[in-house]
Amino acid sequence: MGPVIIGPSSSHTAGVLKLAQLSKIIFQSPLTRASIIFYGSLAHTGKGHGSDRAVIAGLLGMAMDDENIANSFELAHHQKLEFEIKNIYECPDNYHSNTVQFTLANQSRCMTIRGASLGGGYVEVQDIDGYEVSLAGESPTLVVWHHDEIGVIARVSQTLANHGINIAALTSHRREKGEEALLVIKVDTCITDEILETLKDFSAVYRVLYIPGILSGEIS
């Protein structure tokens, strides 16, 4: 059953907000600049649906049922978040018809994250800095940026096993052998800070991100 939201559209308002929330979580650092591109249907009808306000609300960490979503531009100004929103009407063939791309930045970090609003408030992050992923924010998920070398996956999964965590799905992505790689692990139960600290201490691990899942407490 869908989440409690502020209307008017689950895919163009609530879903967009959730994608922005997820992107902010993935960015994992204070945000000062955001550049957003709406593709396809979102570009055509986003303004009418309030997608622009919703996307900024999500980047500010507001909840789907926050009645202040309509004031998100003013709040962003207050919180010194610079943003621009562009519309690209022609949706590339391999993109979902409700696609949003985020370029998020602060002084030390810049990331590009692309995702789709699938309808009914459900979303999927499909690309993180060129890594093709699938993150829905529905189940607890661990994302590990690491150096591509022998044994990293084994050590990470061993650590999870030692703490009694069952892995539901694991995907590994890299652009080039021996360079940076990305590990996405969906798990069945929550991961504690202690486990995250252990993982961060591995020498090959650059960054660890934990998405607790069920951002807005919906039941399907």
């Binding site: 939201i5 502020i6 209307g7 559209s9 009645e67």
Partner: peptide, 15 residues
């Protein structure tokens, strides 16, 4: 209420 950006349950969608 949804059209006026009020609080609703998206079930199955907002529209």
């Amino acid at each position: 209420v949804n059209a006026c950006r009020g609080k609703i349950v998206s079930f199955p969608t907002a529209g």
